[in-house]
Design a protein around this nucleic acid. Structure first.
Lengths: 204, 204
DNA sequence: ACCTGAACACCGTTCAAGT
DNA sequence: ACCTGAACACCGTTCAAGT
């Protein structure tokens, strides 16, 4: 489909506009934002949304997908500068935390109860996998390994750690005064894990 | 399951009955269960719920609190048998995963967007802290340390890891055919972290 | 093809009134 | 003190009708 240049939303890409509005509302009023609010923000009747999304959950899934795409981009950019793998990993983790911190509600939606039950929303799945690829690559270098299984395991371990930490920070179960504090505490806490991974690779 | 209108509830502990019903509904229909459904299950008008809870969120907070109490009990019980700290920790992690697996929706609610914003719900906070105490104790033994800061850091690291792993399993981002498989994979993945923690304690 | 208007069943919350 | 009945504003979803 051809994209009309700078038309009003009504004639242009309403699907995209609704997702944009939903992401804004997520930041402004939280996860209980309404399909009708999103439609109103775009300047369209709420029934119009159903031309582009099967349900509110389908809209949420698209919002979630866009979140993973954005997260993947941040991670990739943060790892760009050439650096020893150890430092690269720490930068990745910090970038991960920053995303969760700055897009709190969006992040919580991404990791909330499953939006893609039943195998629908294949694109969401793909976006998730792509977002963690950078992590596995950096770990491959740290472990000096090309074994995909080993890299996947390590990637999963580090990702799980980062996510669990982010959740604890967002829920204020960790008392930090600023994002900066949370960042350095994360780097501090993850050190044993990275040490353990690197040593384990040596031993084998 | 079977609708049984319990006459006794009306004169008894309606607050408890509503929370019970909510937990059942969480398992049966998921997180979008309704305050009205809970009231109907108890055999009471939905307006009656507001005599015991300020809002639906308050009911959710109570349900969450009860979840953390239950989780704390499982963890404590799983660690009871005398065993080397390493094995004890692995049992704790397995018990943690089992809880998340068996009470999926309840667990997701517990770690979902914050129910206790604004410092209300102090009891929820206390239940959360209590549930992780066993973890810190076991880590104190592993690290052979009584330094509370060190134990808290280690506890936070292991807890973050366990939570992140559980979320990835529940979201089926990790492909496991059974709970048993998920358990042993968890033990496998967490090994580097425990190694790193133990080694780090030796070095200092 | 895309959107509107109107309707439906349902929801959280409130409150005067019953017991 | 605890609960009911009725009401309010709002929601997700559907669909015939407009353009």
């Amino acid at each position: 489909m051809t994209r009309r240049p700078k038309r009003a939303y009504h004639h242009g890409d309403l699907q995209r506009a609704l997702a944009d509005a939903a992401i804004e509302l997520l930041a402004e009023v939280g996860p209980s934002f309404t399909l009708r609010q999103a439609a109103e923000r775009v300047g369209v009747t709420h029934a119009a949304a159903y031309r582009h999304f099967d349900s509110r959950d389908a809209l949420l899934a698209e919002v979630s997908r866009r979140g993973f795409v954005a997260l993947g981009e941040r991670l990739a950019r943060s790892a760009r500068g050439a650096a020893p793998p150890r430092e690269r990993l720490e930068r990745l983790l910090v970038a991960y935390l920053r995303f969760a911190w700055k897009h709190r509600a969006h992040y919580e939606l991404m990791f909330g109860p499953r939006l893609n039950e039943g195998g629908r929303f294949v694109e969401l799945e793909r976006a998730i996998r792509a977002s963690t690829r950078v992590l596995e690559e950096a770990l491959g270098e740290l472990l000096d390994s090309t074994d995909p299984v080993q890299c996947r395991d390590a990637g999963l371990a580090v990702w799980s750690f980062a996510h669990g930490y982010a959740v604890n920070v967002l829920a204020r179960r960790i008392h930090v005064r600023s994002l900066r504090t949370a960042e350095s505490y994360l780097v501090h806490l993850v050190r044993p894990l990275l040490d353990g991974l690197a040593d384990g690779a040596d031993a084998s």
